[in-house]
Amino acid sequence: MTPILQARGLSRSFGHVRALDGADFDVHEGEIVGLIGDNGAGKSTLIKALSGNLDLDDGEIYFRGERVRFAGPRDAEEVGIEVVYQDLALAPHLNPVQNVFLGREIARKGILGHLGFMDEKEMRGRAAQSFAELGATVRSLSAPVGSMSGGQRQGIAIARAMAWAKRVLILDEPTAALGVVQTKNVLESIKRVRDKGIAVVFISHSMPHVLEVCDRIQVLRLGKRVATYPGHQTTVEELVGAMTGALDARDGAA
């Protein structure tokens, strides 16, 4: 089966630092793939390349079997790829509803829409539904997100990505700022997204969370993919060993 998103031999250097060194990656529709590695392994650089946020020195990216070149994040979004980065990329002066629909505002019908009036009621309802489905606690739909806690901002960013992802959802440490209940809601939501046929890339330092939700797990070390494991046939010890190079890793289709 052809991966919906695939990277072959990606390389990228920043000065004398080689962040990606011939990295490979793949994810299929309706699959959750864990992407793990120690700090500096190249995980964030890889997802920036896959989502049009970074130019490459070398390598190829394929979407639905065809080679693509995303000139920017908008190109990736147009084909259905959404990303939640560690910095969340929210506009702190805007409220949760405005952040969910930023750049995708819904115009009112008729002449008012042509005059630039937005359908705030419709957007508010859809945003509230997205937060409810995720189980995200949002203190206020009208307050600026910059005044909210890290957990609330995290929930808003995740809900926004899940609302718009059509083909691929990439989550970079989505549970880092969340409590126990919110983390459980996010992990369950990730499974529901997968069950809709959407591919999910899950980056996390929490090995128990990775093992709980991932169908496959790919390990990066020093800018390369060094191992691929079936999510239900590996252990924390094996994953950590591959990440650190302490154990012989195996790479191949699960």
Rank of each mutant, 00 (worst) to 15 (best):
residue 7 A to V: 01
residue 48 K to T: 08
residue 39 N to F: 05
residue 69 R to E: 12
residue 186 V to G: 05
residue 136 A to G: 07
residue 33 V to C: 02
residue 87 D to L: 10
residue 163 A to M: 14
residue 32 I to K: 01
residue 131 F to I: 05
residue 139 R to N: 11
residue 170 I to V: 12
residue 42 G to S: 08
residue 204 S to N: 07
residue 98 Q to T: 09
residue 253 A to W: 07
residue 160 R to K: 13
residue 170 I to E: 10
residue 158 I to L: 12
residue 206 S to T: 06
residue 200 V to Y: 06
residue 128 A to S: 10
residue 72 G to H: 10
residue 23 A to E: 00
residue 158 I to Q: 11
residue 209 H to N: 15
residue 24 D to A: 04
residue 47 I to V: 15
residue 28 H to C: 13
residue 109 K to D: 05
residue 70 F to K: 03
residue 75 D to Q: 10
residue 131 F to M: 11
residue 228 T to V: 08
residue 79 V to H: 13
residue 118 M to C: 01
residue 241 G to D: 01
residue 77 E to S: 15
residue 219 V to I: 11
residue 161 A to D: 04
residue 112 L to Q: 07
residue 31 E to N: 13
residue 117 F to K: 00
residue 55 D to K: 15
residue 77 E to V: 09
residue 197 G to Y: 02
residue 15 G to Q: 08
residue 133 E to D: 15
residue 30 G to S: 11
residue 127 A to G: 03
residue 244 T to C: 03
residue 68 V to R: 15
residue 243 M to Y: 05
residue 163 A to P: 01
residue 64 R to C: 05
residue 54 L to K: 12
residue 193 V to E: 13
residue 181 V to W: 00
residue 13 S to Y: 04
residue 114 H to C: 07
residue 46 L to W: 08
residue 212 E to D: 15
residue 193 V to W: 00
residue 225 R to L: 14
residue 165 A to I: 00
residue 186 V to M: 03
residue 227 A to C: 12
residue 224 K to V: 11
residue 183 T to P: 11
residue 97 V to L: 07
residue 68 V to T: 06
residue 94 L to P: 12
residue 169 L to G: 14
residue 159 A to L: 03
residue 245 G to H: 01
residue 42 G to Q: 02
residue 1 M to P: 13
residue 115 L to M: 15
residue 179 G to C: 05
residue 179 G to Y: 02
residue 15 G to L: 09
residue 3 P to I: 03
residue 224 K to H: 10
residue 173 E to P: 13
residue 62 Y to C: 00
residue 64 R to V: 00
residue 71 A to R: 15
residue 220 L to A: 09
residue 92 P to Y: 04
residue 245 G to S: 06
residue 197 G to K: 03
residue 167 R to Q: 15
residue 185 N to L: 01
residue 142 S to E: 14
residue 78 E to R: 15
residue 73 P to V: 08
residue 222 L to D: 15
residue 151 G to N: 06
residue 69 R to S: 12
residue 22 G to M: 11
residue 62 Y to Q: 01
residue 188 E to A: 14
residue 189 S to H: 06
residue 213 V to W: 09
residue 53 N to T: 01
residue 162 M to C: 11
residue 28 H to E: 06
residue 73 P to M: 02
residue 148 M to P: 14
residue 139 R to P: 08
residue 175 T to M: 07
residue 62 Y to G: 03
residue 158 I to S: 09
